[in-house]
Nucleic acid binder design. Sequence first.
DNA 1: GCCTCCATGTAATCCGTTACATGATTAA
DNA 2: TTAATCATGTAACGGATTACATGGAGGC
Lengths: 182, 182
Amino acid sequence: MAQKNRLKFIILGLLTQQGQTGYDLAKSFDSDIGEFWQANHSQIYPLLKKMEKEGLITHEILTVGQKMEKKLYLITKAGETLFDQWLKEPSLPDNSHDEFILKLYFINDAHSSLLPVMLREQAKIHHAKLGHLEQQLKRKFPDQTAIDRQYGHFLVLRHALNRENQYANWLDGLLDGDDNMV
Amino acid sequence: MAQKNRLKFIILGLLTQQGQTGYDLAKSFDSDIGEFWQANHSQIYPLLKKMEKEGLITHEILTVGQKMEKKLYLITKAGETLFDQWLKEPSLPDNSHDEFILKLYFINDAHSSLLPVMLREQAKIHHAKLGHLEQQLKRKFPDQTAIDRQYGHFLVLRHALNRENQYANWLDGLLDGDDNMV
DNA sequence: GCCTCCATGTAATCCGTTACATGATTAA
DNA sequence: TTAATCATGTAACGGATTACATGGAGGC
């Protein structure tokens, strides 16, 4: 998307918590942060090098087994400063790129035979996502201690859950023919 | 984002309604569809040429005034077929790239002094957007006739409004310290 | 005559995805 | 010993943004 290099800040954020390898960073997009942001190792490794040149991070070499070397990346003072600045900046919401909504826009006829099919399919997807998020919330935040430790993560998960809940309800309402559903 | 060329389908969709110039197409991203998708003329003009090569669209030259020529693009049968296929395909939701949510994720401490500032700022943005969407809905869909003419557009607008409403309420709830707000 | 809008293009750059490529470690 | 996982990289390509660039039409 020619974005505003948000991955840079995600990496900084993850490194404030602890030093990590590129591999570790890539893995966090399979869980946790992966619930709402994506990145591949092929994007991460070059960016780590670039960020090191910029003085935002450094690395130490760790030797594992006989010869395998891995790079443990650490955030620098400059990196921490930049990250804190970013947190403080206002953030404008993207227009979400929801392909289903895009398609819906082009369905002019309220009685199109496509509509119920599309709605049902989409409802299925969002109900599944809702179930997944409920499970995540239970798994990651079983008690108050967990919430206190990662309050932001907790809020983000609950926000996603609210969003999916509302989305699914809206679709269900449309499928029930409840036209004035809000 | 190295997306799946959704702009192509937007252009096809817009051209099913009526023949348009590149300029006209670019303008629709300032209103209507611009509420939830963006594109610039610098992306549109080259894509129109590419799509014409692919046989999805054609163009006619219109002369305006003494010498100015403009290209009126028209969708072909092949274009219509492709567009209909796209509508019928399942669409998986993107993970929305909401930068505020990203920042929130990194706020571990529930009592961070950053939190209320961020929440207030964000609430302001979403309340403004909510107001804007309410106005749009009233302006574009003042009566049932308008709704019947562009039912999909109507649904999309109402969906956006619901989403913003829920988002704003969630933020307000957090600001009120109502921790278990859903 | 001047300003705004109409109208169309290209170039540079960046971001992101998919594919290509290699090799070590560890546990079954 | 062999499969899964750890670990690190590059290349090709496509999509999106910003900037550069040009010129006509129409209203005041």
